[in-house]
């Protein structure tokens, strides 16, 4: 029989190496990224208020370089930590079951909870594309002009393939945010049985709003509701 030595002294324990600590880091960075997604969505709603409003908002952000770069660095670090520890945990979890079941039926696992490891990288790829698409203009939309965000968005979403890609990414984001949101309360030890139902409801509403609003942008362009002005 295998026998692993028993840990008898707490002073020899390195808590930051524990799986639980890694999860806490994923949860805390998750809060940062969740917050960013929310703010990003609120900012983008200005698309419906016309080019002036949106372009002005973009210029405002561009004018505050130090703030902007602080945000970017924090976000980049959050993404890095989030992804790194999530992947480390995933690798560990895979190795914890070297022989798979012949048949395994899940009772309470949900689509969202079982797909975190796929929705996450999908969102990651999307973010890279999104930045190359709109921010740096490396893969620019037609008639790219870094000072006219409104037109860039409209030109971009007029390409159906691009719109579909964005819509798929937003659904993945919704999945990820819902399970991640519920999960972080558990990981940070904030969940109790009493507030389980309201918590799930609130997160469901928030993620649904995020997904619907974000999807509405390409749909509005495709249907002509929002066009060049």
């Amino acid at each position: 029989m295998s026998s692993i030595p028993i840990i008898t002294s707490a002073s020899s324990v390195k808590p930051l190496e524990a799986t639980v600590a890694k999860k806490v880091l994923v949860a805390i960075t998750g809060i940062v990224l969740f917050g960013f997604v929310l703010i990003h969505m609120v900012g983008n709603i200005q698309l419906y208020q016309g080019p002036e409003k949106l372009n002005h908002y973009a210029e405002l952000l561009q004018s505050m370089k130090p703030v902007l770069w602080t945000f970017r660095i924090v976000l980049l670090a959050a993404v890095g930590v989030h992804a790194l520890f999530a992947i480390l945990l995933w690798l560990r979890n895979r190795s914890a079951r070297p022989v798979a079941y012949e048949s395994q039926r899940f009772v309470s696992a949900t689509l969202t909870s079982r797909t975190m490891i796929w929705s996450g990288p999908l969102i990651g790829l999307f973010v890279v594309y999104h930045i190359l698409h709109f921010t740096t203009g490396t893969f620019p939309p037609p008639h790219f002009n870094s000072h006219n965000v409104y037109n860039n968005v409209v030109y971009a979403f007029q390409v159906p393939g691009v719109s579909i890609a964005y819509i798929i990414a937003m659904v993945a984001l919704g999945f990820h945010l819902y399970h991640g949101g519920v999960s972080l309360f558990q990981t940070l030890g904030l969940r109790t049985p009493h507030d389980e139902k309201p918590l799930k409801l609130v997160l469901w509403v928030i993620t649904t709003i995020i997904v619907v609003v974000n999807i509405s942008f390409p749909l509005a362009v495709l249907t002509g509701l929002v066009g060049l002005k």
């Binding site: 639980v20 945990l89 975190m116």
Partner: peptide, 25 residues
């Protein structure tokens, strides 16, 4: 809690991703 979690990790169990299959089983 520190010692028990450290031992659990040392044994090679996976981490929790809040899926809830354990509770059902």
């Amino acid at each position: 809690v520190l010692k028990m979690v450290a031992q659990m990790d040392a044994e090679g169990f996976g981490g929790c991703t809040n899926i809830g299959e354990c509770e059902s089983a």
